[in-house]
Design a protein around this nucleic acid. Sequence first.
RNA 1: GGAGAGAUUCCCGAGUGGUCAAAGGGGGCAGACUGUAAAUCUGUUGGCUUAGCCUUCGAAGGUUCAAAUCCUUCUCUCUCCA
Length: 408
Amino acid sequence: MNKALEILQRRGFIQQCTDFEGLSRAMNEGPITFYVGCDPTGPSLHIGHMVPFFAYKHLVSAGHHGIALLGGGTARIGDPSGKTEMRKMISYDEIDANAERFRRQLDAFLKFDGKTAYTANNKDWLANLNYIEFLRDIGRHFSVNRMLSFEAYKIRMETGLSFIEFNYQLLQSYDFLELYKRYNCRLQIGGDDQWGNIVAGIELIRRVEGAETYGLTFPLITTSDGKKMGKTEKGALFLDPEMVSPYDFFQYWRNVDDRDVKRFLLLFTFLSEEECEQLTAPDKNINEAKERLAYEVTKLIHGKDEADKALEGAHAAFGGSGNIEAMPTLTLPRQRFEAGYPVLDLFVDAGLAPSKSEARRLIQQNGAMVGGKLWTNEKQAVTLADCDCAEYCILRAGKKRYMRILFE
RNA sequence: GGAGAGAUUCCCGAGUGGUCAAAGGGGGCAGACUGUAAAUCUGUUGGCUUAGCCUUCGAAGGUUCAAAUCCUUCUCUCUCCA
């Protein structure tokens, strides 16, 4: 088997391939161009998008050429695959703004050089398609009967599928065709939910161009307790540091299930397989492996500085050592403490409770700490005397959420 | 276009005049046990100036001492027929 493919397989990336041997042969013959698409339907990429991009990096470092396709055109339609209901329509402006953010996030991770790694936006060829021509040239190759038999549409047969979404597959297939023609792109990779769309594209290219292309999918990552990967109580694990702070990002990985550590090390870091193996060996402390996982992934997404900071902050919060400065920090007016800061307000202002009722509950349930001491009186105000020192005060909500309050 | 069904708190889903801030489950949060893990158990889960008050049951009006529950109009969703 081709070496790059073998790496992907050993690291747990591969779910399905349209033609393993054919692809392996093609890749052995020389660098091939592949693509992975994602639709900018939200303001930021999240970790669920990233598995194909980790694969992207593996493939590029094996010498192949990768295109990251931004679905500026397809986002206007909405992919019904795996969705139970129709996505709400997004304005063109919003899509374009999202696409630009996606591009920047991907650039930071993939380091586009314009030669072996670059982006394209399907808006360029989809936005001004002529409907009649599209139907005549592309639409005629698609069988409705066959499309209806796809698993992706099965759920939607129950709840309803509008015509706009039914066209999604045609557009994605057309993308592949277009990339084949423009860049000789011969492989599409993506999450396993894209299988149907990928296969449809391969067939379209075969019919229109008589050429053989390939599809490769990766498993949709779920955590060992069956939840969708990257879902947190606040929503998805976004890459945008404004939406999920590097500290919280780090904490997500630090807290993964024991059973997921090795799998995630292989998928979401570029540590060698031996190293992943060693870190998770039975005689090793699994918590060190988790910490390494958290550090490595944070470094890849947010850079070394942020990763160092998150690690230090975590040590300060949980370990007693580390750097207090690196803990999540917020500044509040000193005079409020001088006047006596009502605890409930303090916890809300610190972002540790969404409402005063929640803050009250936290205190009633013995989950609130101020300056290292359990706080039990919801009516009592916090003064400087209750704080850790004259410079700051550490608040804790539950076991894991910390906030260091600076006075100003 | 015609006929029917439906819209309930984060999600699913009970509730058909007062006893409803609304059963039950899921999820979340907190506590115990631990390892910042899993599993388990307990508590909690609209807001607030918390023995009380205020806002919520698709939207707007109306009936009533009293409405998630009854009436009117509107919006949206689904099913069947064309």
